[in-house]
Write a protein that binds this DNA or RNA. Structure first.
Length: 479
RNA sequence: GGCGGCGUAGCCAAGUGGCCUAAGGCGAAGGUCUGCAAAACCUUUAUUCACCGGUUCAAAUCCGGUCGCCGCCUCCA
């Protein structure tokens, strides 16, 4: 097995990975704030984390992943109030939608999805520890973390107090903070919070945003664990603050490796509602692209590289997703041929030397790429090199039925880490009727009645069914 | 202004000291095959890695500088 290496934001270096407990990886991944549908840029982050956990498992590690659900913050409170709903009812809608999207995108479930509102006692306990150790101060009933009490503050992001851009707004209602980087651990209740509050030892109020991750990570992973991930935008202040809270509160180290994914950009611009280039998974699937195509696209570039989605459906521009769909189509065609040939294999048949060498080399290339800081482009390169070589052997007749089974098995095995090989289940298609029409067409072709044959081809084409004749029979697929 | 990332073919995108006269995908051109149509296969599509210096026997890869792009700088993955 090649050495597994990750780029660690903490050290700005690609490092060899060594988990705290051999063979086991504990990771915390920042999850969604459930006040709206997640957009496909958000899913790039969750897909990166999915690739990370699948890669670790593929390489033989046991993985314990925790992803938080942030179901209380200013925005969420405001939006639920606007709908006259309780916080719980309101966030339930988006929690459900989030899990539907995860399933559609074939994102493996984490081991635990703790919701912030279910862990207030743990947060209160951590804040209490921070108060005891003198890392906090109180102002108007709210409790703030005092940055100056933690000399290591800024190590992750390399941001120093004197480097913060001068003149940038300091929220008017936070004038009482001693340092602009100080942040709220506990927010005292205000009338705008309405029904949203907890009566605790700290008073009536609600937790600050950062504290949930420190508290829930400790609860499910321990205070010192292996990997923490999130989008680059979280480096400062969120992750910096998590480190401060956890290290000061628990007195242990926090995460050993920090991995951050770059953003998805759309036509070279940041995705935002105001620019009108803001897309949810629902938007893209209703434009005719399957979640599998979206998964392939979002996964295809290295996670630390900004990924550009060339997409403007109103102008008919769908380049990126078209390319992804074509590439998957090529893979699907290959697998159909392998399956057809594989059916003729018999027990005791030998695999050819050439194919087994090809598979060994491909496996080596795939694993080496993934172990190198999740170089998924390199891994897909290995997949398509196998497709290309395999097609060559198929065309020249050098591939035996047993070889075909072996190649197909290999692709299926790889799908455990890639999650893009299996085609989407066809829905709304009457396969028996189509096959009956294909039989009729082939009889017509035998009888040289090509007019009838073409008629059937056209009829099916109107339904979006494409026929492909081959020496071994006629295949069909939905376009 | 500070911090971080990045600039590789028409487009997307790997490769971070020698196997690179640079993977893979999309697109394009020619050919083989084919009742039609497609797929597949073969060939072609970067002697070059933003630019300029330097280190080295050897650089897309390391160092310095220049130009350009993106992100973060208080709650956005």
């Amino acid at each position: 097995m090649p050495t597994l290496r990750f780029y660690n934001t903490l050290t700005n270096w690609k490092e060899d990975f060594h988990p705290l407990i051999p063979g086991e990886v504990r990771m915390y991944t920042c999850g969604p704030t459930v006040h709206d549908f997640a957009h496909i840029g958000n899913f790039r982050a969750y897909l990166f984390e999915d690739l990370l956990r699948r890669t670790l498992k593929y390489l033989g590690f046991r993985v314990i992943q925790v992803m938080n659900l942030t179901d209380v913050d200013d925005k969420t409170i405001r939006k639920s109030q606007a709908k006259s709903m309780t916080l719980r009812d309101y966030t339930a809608i988006y929690k459900e939608a989030f899990f539907q999207d995860l399933d559609a995108l074939r994102i493996e479930r984490a081991e635990v999805y703790p919701a912030a509102t279910d862990h207030v006692p743990e947060m209160v306990e951590l804040i209490r520890r921070l108060v005891e150790k003198g890392h906090t101060y109180e102002a108007d009933g709210s409790i703030y973390f005092r940055i100056s009490s933690f000399p290591e503050y800024g190590k992750l992001s390399n941001i120093r107090a004197d480097e913060l851009r001068a003149g940038v707004r300091v929220d008017a209602d936070e004038y009482e903070k001693e340092d602009v980087r100080d942040f709220a651990l506990w927010k005292a209740w205000t009338p705008e919070d309405g029904e949203v509050y907890w009566e605790t030892a700290l008073g009536k109020g609600r937790p600050g945003w950062h504290i949930e991750c420190s508290a829930m990570a400790a609860r499910y992973l321990g205070t010192h664990f292996d990997i923490h991930t999130g989008g680059v935008d979280n480096i400062f202040p969120h992750h910096e603050n998590e480190i401060a809270q956890s290290v000061c509160g628990f007195g242990t180290k926090f995460a050993n490796y920090w991995l951050h994914n770059a953003h998805l950009v759309v036509n070279g611009e940041k995705m935002s509602k105001s620019l009108g280039n803001f897309y949810t998974l629902r938007d893209v699937t209703s434009a005719g692209f399957s979640p599998r195509v979206v998964r392939y696209f979002l996964l295809s570039a290295h996670y630390r590289q900004p990924l550009n989605l060339v997409y403007d459906p109103r102008a008919g521009v769908t380049e990126s997703l078209d390319a992804a769909r074509s590439a998957l189509g090529r893979l699907d065609e290959f697998r159909v041929k392998l399956t057809e040939l594989g059916r003729r294999s018999a027990a005791g048949d030998l695999q050819s030397r050439e194919v087994s060498d090809l598979l060994d080399k491909a496996e080596e290339a795939l694993v080496a790429a993934l172990a190198n800081d999740l170089d998924v482009s390199g891994a897909l390169g290995a997949v398509f090199t196998l497709v290309k070589e395999g097609n060559r052997l198929l065309a020249s007749g050098e591939m035996t039925p047993t070889d075909a089974v072996a190649v197909n098995d290999k692709l299926q095995r790889w799908d455990r880490v890639l999650g893009v090989v299996e085609p989407e289940a066809e829905t709304g298609v009457d396969a028996e009727r189509i096959e009956a029409l294909i039989r009729e067409r082939n009889e017509a072709r035998q009888a040289k009645n090509f007019a009838r044959a073409d008629e059937i081809r056209q009829q099916l084409l109107r339904e979006g069914i494409v026929l492909q004749d081959s020496p071994t029979g006629t295949r069909w697929k939905k376009e």
